[in-house]
Amino acid sequence: MPARDDRTGTDRTRATARRDPGRRPAPAVAPTGDRLIVGTVPPAVPVVGVLLVLAGLVGVAAAFPTYLVVDGEVLRQVHGPGSALLAVLVPAVQVAVGATLVRRAVPKFGLAYASITGALSVGELMIEVYRGSSSTSRPGVEVLAGERVLTSGIQVGAGWVLGVVALSLTVLAGAVALTAWGRTVMEDRGALDRLRSVLAGSAVLLGVAAVLCLALPAADVPAELRTDPATGLQTVVTREGSQALLERPGLALLGGLLLAGALLLCSVVAPSLRPRLAVVGGLLGITVTVLSAGLVGLRDAASSEELVWTVPGAGLVVVGMAFAALTVLAWRARRSAA
């Protein structure tokens, strides 16, 4: 009966190498998956998480009080269950991503999201400040919170103030995230590298499409067809409604230019971030911004009989869903490479 060999696999390999010096042991097989490495996480990372969580909570609180009082008419952003769900969409994502940063889990995912949304929120903040403070300097017909109003007199409400605070916290979180990015260590095995060119080209095209859609109102007042009773001649009368992104003066015009430029820049930068989860975070930030802009137009058209949902508004929803598809593609690249 042969003797039992109680040696471990390492001992048997070494014994075989001693008996046959020319034979080399088989190389170890690398594990599949991302092989994610998280190293140094600076103290600024949880600070970004706290700022995002605060921005999300304040954003939820801003959705329900009075937004603006325009010529004595009280405007609110929430008109029903559907608009309430839309109002908490962006804040809910902010709270979820901020919680991951507070726990220091996958830090560059949250830092990428905070940086992208912070850059996009600069223009949105300027437009919001114009609505509540400077729009009376050049009174005109405008669509605010789904209502067609004349901006000859505006009083800010608690909802507007809280909304400005939420946007300011988002911008601050993005600035802190940029300072913490270079000192945060997080790497993977490059599972997304073979798809980066596809993601980059698609994101740039979608960014251009999003800017073109943002240039026109997502919900507008339709033209009116009138008939002359004497001649029976029908004419189309254009009624003043929503102002386009680049039609507003002063601070709002600067905000619109910054928003359009930041959207194009973020569409270029997001697919080039490393590691893979940073790409997911960056694309998620663009997705939420573009999709919410299109859905706000749908909310305004649904809540007012004077407004209709426009083709650019529907285009924003389509582009937002396409960005969401790119986000899912980047997320699932780890499984396809495993």
Score class of each variant (00 low, 15 high):
Ser152Phe: 00
Asp6Ser: 05
Pro249Thr: 07
Ala252Lys: 05
Glu305Asn: 14
Ala28Cys: 00
Ala158Met: 14
Ala215Lys: 01
Pro312Glu: 07
Gly39Ser: 12
Gly159Gln: 11
Ala333Phe: 01
Asp5Cys: 04
Gly255Gln: 08
Trp331Leu: 13
Leu125Met: 07
Ala209Asp: 05
Leu36Tyr: 01
Glu305Trp: 13
Ala219Thr: 10
Gly163Pro: 10
Ser152Gly: 15
Ser197Tyr: 02
Thr40Glu: 14
Pro65Asn: 07
Met321Gln: 10
Leu254Ser: 08
Leu259Glu: 12
Thr231Met: 07
Glu187His: 13
Leu144Thr: 02
Leu57Phe: 13
Leu85Arg: 06
Ala44Asp: 15
Val161Ala: 14
Ser272Tyr: 10
Leu192Lys: 03
Asp188Ile: 08
Thr327His: 09
Gly118Asn: 06
Arg131Gly: 06
Leu167Lys: 12
Thr310Cys: 09
Leu206Pro: 05
Thr66Cys: 03
Glu306Arg: 15
Ala96Leu: 15
Val198Leu: 10
Asp5Arg: 02
Leu265Gly: 01
Gly98His: 14
Pro46Phe: 12
Ala114Glu: 09
Leu172Met: 10
Asp300Glu: 12
Pro222Trp: 12
Ala200Gln: 08
Leu258Tyr: 12
Asp220Val: 02
Val156Met: 13
Ala215His: 04
Pro2Tyr: 04
Thr13Glu: 12
Thr238Arg: 15
Leu329Trp: 15
Ala223Cys: 00
Leu57Thr: 08
Pro27Ala: 04
Arg248Val: 02
Thr117Pro: 00
Ser152Trp: 00
Trp331Cys: 01
Ala3Met: 06
Phe323Asn: 04
Arg248Trp: 00
Glu73Phe: 03
Arg19Ala: 12
Arg76Pro: 01
Gly250Phe: 07
Pro27Trp: 00
Gly118Thr: 06
Trp160His: 14
Ala61Ile: 10
Gly9Gln: 04
Pro31Phe: 00
Arg248Asn: 02
Val176Met: 05
Trp160Asn: 08
Pro81Arg: 09
Ala92Tyr: 08
